[in-house]
Write a protein that binds this DNA or RNA. Structure first.
Lengths: 329, 329
DNA sequence: TTGAAAGCGCTAACAA
DNA sequence: TTGTTAGCGCTTTCAA
């Protein structure tokens, strides 16, 4: 009757109940034939005494770790951090539901040693890549490793499991809506083309905006580059500005304000991505809205399905919302 | 001679070398007596064939996971994210050096279920709390759990392992420097008092600024609260504004600019914390500079020392830099 | 439906 | 200095 500090094992449970370890194991896992009555007895006992299976022992026997690795760039922009944070929350929730935990790994361009560590040491059963670049060492490495993985975002490689927002449709739809406002000239300020989504957004933009006259400035990353693009838009005679993401939008807005450009009277402004960065801007900004947490959760579930050998779709596209606000009135 | 896909085990290594598993194990761990020559032979073979010990097996035998848990609030402000990100990088680097990996866990006020999962399932050997609140469920829970843990930041509880910047000295020193500028009246805009560091900063401020006349506005979290505090400072007749962190500073600066207050002519401005948020403000902002990555790294090393039973200091305080810039000229 | 026993890959007494 | 052997706690074949 005395409680020991030593953690309980499956054997303790078996002894206490006068049955064998096998039976206990089967009750927990649900594998193998077992009478519902003994099963319930075991489950009740376990719940009452809060026995917890030792994950190492379980892992050793099953060749699993019940861990996933979540990989993000170590050098993210402030703005991307909030995306990764939401996305991570989705991953964590979904992982916890299936009794998995999440190892965090950072990579930077040219340095994927952290990822290699985890994969080579087999500390995770699968990997979620939080962002995909055009030419991505991490993706190449994961492909060669043989470990299951999924990327959040799109890849050109059709063999890679991917979960993404439907950026093409979303950007195209928002662009069409802007087109209906009969702008004279529209400028897109796009982000780093190494990041695939930026190219995708551009494609959606082109698809939706034609045949309206327009210009595109890609690879705007630094504040200077963004401001230069704004100047470009102004001298192009644009009366509508579309920003690839909220960080770009944020700096563009600051610039426009400084120049005394009125929004939306002189210039309509919209963003292909929204987040907390631009949310309390005046006037409120028309933008696309996605659900990063859902993205993470889906990626996670997909990965676990994949790990456990279930059939999974190669590509999953999630929905979006168009938020029409004062900035494009 | 044929390569199998099956992963190598310690036994394979032993057989290949014609020695026993024990000898191989000892060569790797460095524990127990062993001749340098056999040891080197084993190490060479391992390096050449890249054998990796199975972490589950090792963990099972040692009752360890070789994982640490990194706990951050799930609902962080954008500004704190960059702190956690840098800090995490320090943790990851230090952990990797000692062959540990890092599980990520989020908690929110009133919900520490993620933390409980990891602790109860014994998925980590120790926990790093990335932030400490005044009355912190996570700290209380960790104390009761018996698992080693360390907090980044300070706690009032002397039994808790903690690693922090020396905020008191730093804030006090910066305040003294400001005092030497002979301000008429100084206002401190402080953050959420639930977060201990905000109280600490206030203490440092008081210590350094006296006997200059001053006022303090604490618990400024929302933009509105910060702006109200700026108004307060203005009507108090302040000609020097001290902000507890860069987020507060950022919003305060925006407000001052909008009101046409010149910096530093009408109002000197300094921040007790700097980051990317305020870095390209014009004029440049006087602030305290810390090294979050070092904070994370120290916490991590300390924790591992603790886990392995080494003696560790209860409290570690790290240095800082005072960056004097144009905003307080 | 249940149980005995072997095995997952590693460590550590204990012997040699 | 090295090896033998018995676990660590769980799963799973095979037999009952």
């Amino acid at each position: 009757m005395e409680e020991r500090l030593k953690t309980k094992t499956i054997e303790d449970v078996a002894n206490a109940l006068g049955i064998s370890k096998t039976t206990v194991s089967r009750s927990i896992s649900g594998k193998g034939r077992i009478s519902e009555i003994t099963r319930q007895k075991v489950l009740d006992y376990i719940a009452a005494t809060d026995y917890r299976p030792n994950p190492n022992a379980k892992g050793l026997a099953n060749a699993r770790t019940y861990n996933l690795a979540w990989v993000i760039p170590g050098d993210s922009e402030l703005a991307s951090l909030s995306f990764f944070q939401s996305c991570l929350q989705g991953v964590l929730d979904a992982a916890a539901q299936q009794d998995h935990d999440v190892l965090i790994v950072t990579v930077s361009p040219g340095n994927i040693s952290g990822l290699k560590r985890v994969v080579e040491n087999r500390k995770a059963d699968g990997v979620i890549l939080g962002q995909s670049l055009d030419k991505d060492m991490a993706v190449d490495y994961m492909k060669s490793s043989g470990l299951p993985f999924v990327v959040v975002g799109s890849t050109y490689d059709p063999e890679v499991l991917q979960v993404d927002n439907d950026h093409i449709s979303a950007c195209s739809e928002l662009s069409s809506i802007l087109k209906m406002k009969k702008p004279r000239f529209v400028t897109l300020i796009g982000g780093d083309q190494e990041i695939i989504v930026n190219t995708t957004r551009r494609q959606g933009f082109e698809a939706g905006i034609n045949p309206v006259r327009h210009s595109v400035y890609m690879n705007c990353v630094t504040v200077e580059e963004i401001e230069r693009a704004v100047e470009g838009a102004l001298s192009d005679g644009a009366d509508c500005l579309v920003c690839a993401d909220d960080r770009i939008c944020y700096h563009a807005l600051n610039r426009l304000k400084r120049d005394g450009v009125r929004i939306p009277e002189d210039m309509r402004v919209a963003s292909f991505y929204n987040s907390r960065l631009t949310e309390d801007f005046e006037p409120s900004i028309t933008s696309l809205h996605y659900d990063p947490a859902e993205l993470g959760a889906r990626a996670c579930r997909l990965l676990i399905d994949r790990i456990e050998g279930r059939e999974v779709p190669g590509r999953t596209l999630l929905g979006y919302e168009v938020l029409l606000k004062a900035s494009t009135r």
